[in-house]
Design a protein around this nucleic acid. Structure first.
Lengths: 153, 153
DNA sequence: TCTCCTATGTCAAAATCCTGACATGGAAGA
DNA sequence: TCTTCCATGTCAGGATTTTGACATAGGAGA
């Protein structure tokens, strides 16, 4: 069933909806939509949640580091951080004695908010995982990483 | 075949960067960035290119249909269509005798622009395809579709 | 030491996208 | 027929994101 690639045509499909990029975009859009909907009930946006999750695992990350981790620009993450600061979900020192990066940390309020939102997000992730045969899950993750790396992600 | 749910750890990884959603987001972000960069040299944005590609395969699509195909809202696609109309890359009748949907079509100029941009985009897609073992490509596409479907995409 | 280079934080402006809303056209069912 | 419902196109407003730019802090090398 998999011998068709033996010829390796540069463009295996004539329909754009058959292309890898299109499928990837569709899956990502579906995930984004589901997360958007789920997180709204917790008063968080997707970038905000991503930021909290990153800070929970790696406390003290700077604005630029968070931006790279969430795949947005420094400027966008800066706006996100301000929103989270205004909501008292994270804390950031106004100055630092060494360097320029300001390390951010979760507040107690931020941690509880994250815990609440996490269950909703993990349920979505579980739906995704159940949609792919278990034996293929590892390969799927590897392939996603490989594609990202091939494109300089 | 689906007996894995008997054990089914709810959260297989303790690191967010190990989650399916994170990998998917990263791959999609890498693709978006690569396409953005490539298409800029052709004077097109990603939604504009997606719109042209859809219209090349299915001439006469309406604004709402294009929006669904490109995973954006009707309003966003409306803006895209106006830009493409101003650039003379597509044409749309001002009125219609039946219904309300206005069918869009590529102009000759739009088709040549699409042809030029397509080679750049296909090169990116080729890079992605080469990053995954050939025998896994079909399964990858199926899994992406499965995940999108599971999330209501 | 001094100079270059990179990284970071931030500001300003524009572009993009979405939410909410409204009016219209068509189809389905009472 | 008529009434209800759904899909479409469009407008207005705001939120989000990006591009471009600038100043500063620290490290590497001459």
């Amino acid at each position: 069933m998999e011998d068709r690639k033996s010829v390796a045509p540069p463009h295996p499909a004539h329909d754009v909806t058959e292309h890898v990029g299109y499928r990837l975009k569709r899956a990502a859009a579906a995930l984004r939509g589901a997360m958007d909907k789920a997180l709204r009930q917790h008063g968080l946006t997707v970038p905000q949640y991503a930021c909290l999750e990153l800070l929970d695992e790696q406390p003290g990350l700077s604005n630029a580091e968070l931006a790279r981790g969430a795949f947005v620009t420094r400027q966008s993450m800066n706006v996100v951080l301000r929103g989270l600061q205004d909501a008292e979900l994270i804390s950031r020192p106004a100055t630092t004695d060494h360097g320029r990066a300001l390390p951010a940390h979760l507040t107690a309020q931020g941690r509880s908010r994250l815990d609440a939102a996490r269950s909703a997000v993990y349920a979505i992730e579980q739906q995704m995982i159940e949609a792919v045969p278990q034996r293929r899950l590892g390969a799927l993750l590897d392939d996603l990483d490989g594609m990202a790396a091939a494109l300089g992600g």
